[in-house]
Design a protein around this nucleic acid. Sequence first.
DNA 1: CCCTGCCTGCTG
DNA 2: CAGCAGGCAGGG
Length: 275
Amino acid sequence: MPELPEVETIRRVLEPQIIKQTILRVEARHPQVIAGIPPETFCAGVRKRRITGTGRRGKFLTLLLDNGGRIVLHLRMTGCLLVEPAGCEPEKYTHLIFHLENGTELRFSDMRRFGRFWLIRAGEEDTVSGIHKLGYEPFDARLTPDYLQKMLGGRKKTVKQCLLDQSIIAGIGNIYSDEILFRAHIHPARKACSLTDAELACLAALIPQTLSYYIEKNAISPEDYLASKGQDYRNTPYLSVYGHSGEPCPACGAVLKRVVIGGRSSVCCPQCQKE
DNA sequence: CCCTGCCTGCTG
DNA sequence: CAGCAGGCAGGG
C-alpha cells in the first residue's frame, strides 16, 4: 500500500506510542513475514528489548533497540501497523504482535502477506533487507540535476521506470511517480535519456517538493489513525492524476489517459505531458 | 526487456 | 470469470 509519504506518516504516528516501551514478547502468528532468520531467533532476539527510536529509509521502517540492534520492516502493498490495547480484537490478517509493557500491542496486519520483517543485530551490516541497495532519499541534498543526469542519462528505460527504481531514488512508487511527472509536464513513457537538462532540473526540484507536500497532506492524529484502522490517512483527495483516468485534467481539462509502462499502469494528461 | 511468484480481495 | 491492485525479488 504505502509509498514514502505514507510510511513517514505511519512512523510519525507510531513513534510516540512505542518509544521507550519494552517488548515483552513477540507472537508470530504467521512466521512467513519474518525473513532472513528463523522466526524463533527473531522473537528471541527482540524479546525484552526496549524500543529507543524509529527511522525510515525509502519505504522501509526501522525500530531501534536498546542493545544496538534494529528491526527493519517493509509494508509492501497492504501491510499495516497499529498500536492497540491488548484487550481489543486484532484485525483480520494480523501476522505479528509485539506485546509491549504498557499493555498495548504493536500489531502488523497484511492481507496479501507481502510485507517483511528483518532483525539486524548490533554492529551487523544490513545486507538482507534491501536497504543497502537504495539510492538517495528524495530530500538528500545530493539529489541534484547532475545526479539525475548521471543516473538517467544513459538509460534506455522510461523516466517512469527510473523514478520507480529504488536504487536511483528511494521511496517513490506508482502513485507519486505519476504525480511527480504530471507536475513536471513529462510523459511517463519518455525515454530517460531523452530528458533535457531543464527537465532533469525540474524533476530534481519536484521530487522532494511533491513528496513533502503529500507528507503534510497525510498528517493525521494517532486517534484518527487508529479509528480508521490505519486505512484512512491517505492522500486520495489531493492526487491530481493517479486514480483519475477518464476524468478531466485539473490543469487543462483534457481527458486523463491510462497507459501501461513497464507493466505498471500510469495515468497522465495527453495535453500537458507530451510524448 | 519480459515473465513469474508471493497473497487476497475487488471490479467489471 | 479474468484482470487488476500503491512492491519487490528472481529468473531467462
